[in-house]
Design a protein around this nucleic acid. Structure first.
Lengths: 227, 227
DNA sequence: AGTCCATCTATTGTCGACAATATAACCTCT
DNA sequence: AGAGGTTATATTGTCGACAATAGATGGACT
């Protein structure tokens, strides 16, 4: 099982305090998981009654959803969930490749030896799950792996951009296009190579392997999107 | 003078419609230019009376300011303008180097020949301004140059991240630490080399030159921050 | 019949008031 | 006098109502 020292991934670290926090997280989950369809309109009144809160907190939640590029809003018209398109996927993964490549490089430089150790422990625990091909757990494990490397960069700006910004959009593409498949085991091997490079403090290699890993991942999803 | 086909840079392309739009842009400018001090608290009531709008639109504006990382907010406590620190500057410029390097690479691949032409025209018009060492115009010109390369990437995700996200924070550091100095002419030469690489469709070189250009820029600001 | 214009309706934008929370001031007890 | 707890106050969070705008509906004119 996962470490107790780390939060449950994907649901954000910052726990919800206010009513707007909870509504934001609920809405975000519903959008990422596809319970609210991509491209659909978000009616403030409708959501207000649905979640039992005032329109003010709905607007607040929508504002934050705009900040992570999950919804778009036009003045006096309303908010819509973003559409999932091949072009959007490619653009997103180009950015992700650049940022996560950088994260891997910085992680190789800045991770504490404890963090490196924990990363290896995590991968070991994944090994058994992969053998049983528990595909959902693999999805969670994948997010966890990337999450730790991002945190290991020790760059607050980068961490915010990735974990609060584009990562939920990445998950939205992944979840809604289905993630199981033969890539599970190869992806795991790639993770191990990246972790090895980081353990060796080989920043250049870590960046390169991460970029390649994400490229493969994009090609995998792209394949599904076009079929 | 600048092209008529392009917007006035730095004030966002999307013109303000609603009252919240205007308040957001006003507040953002005041923060970037330092009229509202870095690290200071943003009282909703105070801003409400100051700008003559209700607290609701102030809150809306603050929400958007949080989206571009210019202010931070804690639940039930309030919002503060971000602090300018050496560590924050370095983290920001690391990200910027990665993203704008990518923008330069994509621009070399995706810019239309018209855009390439306009970029050269822009630089020509800057040449005279540099001779007279009009430092403010140089600041504006610099932003304009980078802005066009970002747009030339033709990657909507990247464009949003840079122009609506980190760029205002970059300007905040630059403006509040003063930008004039001997670097003006050398920066101009670097711009020319980047433009040349893009004109040659040499993506690799364009990325490398842009990264180096931004590194120099960071070192220049860092020098002022530490003195 | 088609096009243009006016009205009507539904949705978003804005406002002021109330509720809940955190910080500050104060008071009590050791 | 200092530490701990308690009330007071100022600020943020939430709400429902009103104003303004965009899109839909319907009508008049060519």
């Amino acid at each position: 099982m996962s470490q107790a020292t780390h939060q449950p991934l994907s649901t954000n670290v910052i726990q919800a305090i206010t009513s707007a926090d909870k509504t934001f997280i609920t809405l975000r989950t519903d959008i990422v998981e596809g319970r609210i369809l991509a491209g659909s309109k978000l009616s403030e009144a409708e959501l207000s009654t649905k979640y039992g809160v005032s329109r003010a907190v709905i607007r607040e939640a929508i504002s934050r959803l705009m900040a992570c590029h999950l919804v778009e809003r036009k003045a006096n018209v309303g908010a819509r969930v973003v559409a999932l398109t091949p072009a959007g996927l490619i653009e997103l993964y180009q950015v992700r490749e650049s940022l996560e490549g950088m994260a891997a490089r910085l992680a190789a430089q800045n991770m504490t030896s404890e963090q490196v150790q924990e990363l290896q422990t995590l991968l070991d625990s994944h090994a058994s799950a992969v053998k049983d091909s528990q595909s959902y757990y693999q999805e969670a494990g994948d997010v966890d792996f990337h999450y730790r490397i991002i945190m290991g960069s020790h760059n607050a700006q980068l961490i915010t951009l990735l974990t609060e910004g584009i990562y939920h959009l990445v998950r939205m593409y992944r979840v809604q296009l289905g993630m199981a498949g033969p890539r599970v085991t190869t992806a795991f091997a790639e993770h191990q190579h990246i972790a090895q490079a980081i353990a060796n403090r080989d920043a250049e290699l870590a960046e390169m392997l991460m970029r390649r890993h994400i490229t493969y991942s994009r090609q995998n999803i792209e394949h599904k999107l076009l079929s």
